[in-house]
Simulated assay, not measured.
Amino acid sequence: MKLGLQIPDFTWPDGSARLGSTLATIAKTADSAGFDSIGVMDHFFQIGHLGPPEHEMLEGYTTLGFLAANTSRARLMTVVTGVHYRHPGLLAKTVTTLDVLSGGRAWLGIGAGWNEEESRGLGVPFPPLGQRFEQLKETLEICLQMWRGDESPYQGQQYKLDRPLNSPQSISRPHPGIMIGGSGEKKTLSLVARFADACNLFPTPDLPHKLEVLRGHCEAVGRNYDEIEKTAIFQFDVGERGEKVDDLVGRLHWLAGMGIETVIGSVKDVWRIEPLEIVGERVIPAVAELTATATSGR
């Protein structure tokens, strides 16, 4: 099992003046501690279960560029971009830029999006859910076309691109990894089977069912189910001095038993740095040998 770090909250005790230096220390510590990836939410306002909208929230791709400069090995991604935030041609260019400047470590994390409050607040168009799913499908097609180097016009229902040129081309070949977030059984998991290198799910007891649905979508389109990395969002709470490590390792065993291969989690009080170091020293080695276990009986 691999562990990824997500940083969803930037409201730290030292305030904005030291936010950059604190984030750099977090990134360097996580990179050296063995986290497989470092990600940030792609939100413009803080989301409800983490705090009020007025709390500090950094723009995702600018932050990933900063993280790239302060790391050397971890994958870099949003968890995840709302498809309606950015035009797909510009999104492909943005992820490509991150990939080139990080030496081939960029992933595209993407989903249908949901936060109407921040979209309305900043004047970002927020179409109905059905339209956002159409945008998601076309965005994935456009990104893959641009990463193939195909400059022919793209004519979709949602987007039209006269010349989808992508220069420089991504270092990652055949393209930066694609992770689709969400657990909708009819649309989201179908898009995972068709386009994605990874799925990102919620850590609920119905994970085996969701993965079985994904397996069915893979069979329907002739995709090898085992090619898709199964990830789940989570929180890593090791306690004040590591007293909760054993409990955390047990919960990660539980996720592996349901078929999860990579856990992408926030670290409680990450700004203290010590919790990150504890995860690196005690948790990552403890779960490194865990292998996801299929529970579908196949």
Rank of each mutant, 00 (worst) to 15 (best):
A292T: 09
N70K: 12
L189I: 08
Y61D: 00
T94P: 01
D206T: 13
G65N: 10
A232L: 03
I178G: 04
L5P: 06
G181L: 07
D36Q: 09
E229Q: 12
G242D: 13
A198H: 03
R75I: 00
R120K: 13
G149K: 06
C218I: 07
V263R: 02
I260R: 03
R163T: 04
F66N: 04
P127D: 07
H217E: 02
Q131Y: 00
L201S: 02
P52V: 09
T295M: 11
G280I: 00
E141P: 07
V279I: 14
V279Y: 05
G242P: 13
R282V: 02
A17D: 15
I142V: 12
S172V: 04
R215L: 07
I171H: 02
A24E: 13
T139F: 11
S183T: 06
T139G: 13
L19Q: 10
L3S: 05
V83M: 07
D197W: 01
V245S: 05
L248G: 00
G222E: 09
L64C: 07
L50E: 05
D31R: 10
D237K: 10
V95G: 10
D247W: 00
A69G: 15
S170E: 02
K160L: 06
H217Y: 03
N166F: 04
R298K: 15
I171P: 03
L108H: 08
H253A: 09
A92Y: 03
D31N: 11
K137G: 10
T22S: 12
P203G: 06
T293P: 01
T71N: 02
I264V: 15
G51W: 11
L64M: 12
G280A: 08
G149W: 08
V221Q: 06
D197A: 05
L76K: 03
W114Q: 07
H217I: 03
P88M: 06
Q169T: 05
F195I: 06
G111L: 13
E243P: 06
G297W: 03
E281H: 10
A232C: 14
S183K: 05
M179W: 05
Q158L: 06
H253F: 00
G34Q: 11
S190T: 00
E261A: 13
R73G: 06
R132D: 09
S102I: 01
P168M: 08
G149V: 11
I264E: 07
G60C: 15
L50Y: 14
M179N: 05
T29H: 09
W147N: 05
G39Q: 07
P275Y: 06
G39M: 10
T11I: 01
A193D: 03
A232R: 01
G280E: 09
V79S: 10
R105N: 02
S167L: 13
I38C: 04
G51M: 12
I273A: 07
S102D: 01
P153A: 12
L255V: 04
R194S: 11
E229F: 02
A33N: 05
R132L: 11
L252G: 04
G48V: 04
E261G: 12
V79A: 13
K268V: 15
L3V: 10
A33V: 01
H253E: 14
D226T: 12
G121N: 13
E227S: 14
A68Y: 00
L211N: 11
K210F: 04
V80Q: 06
V267N: 10
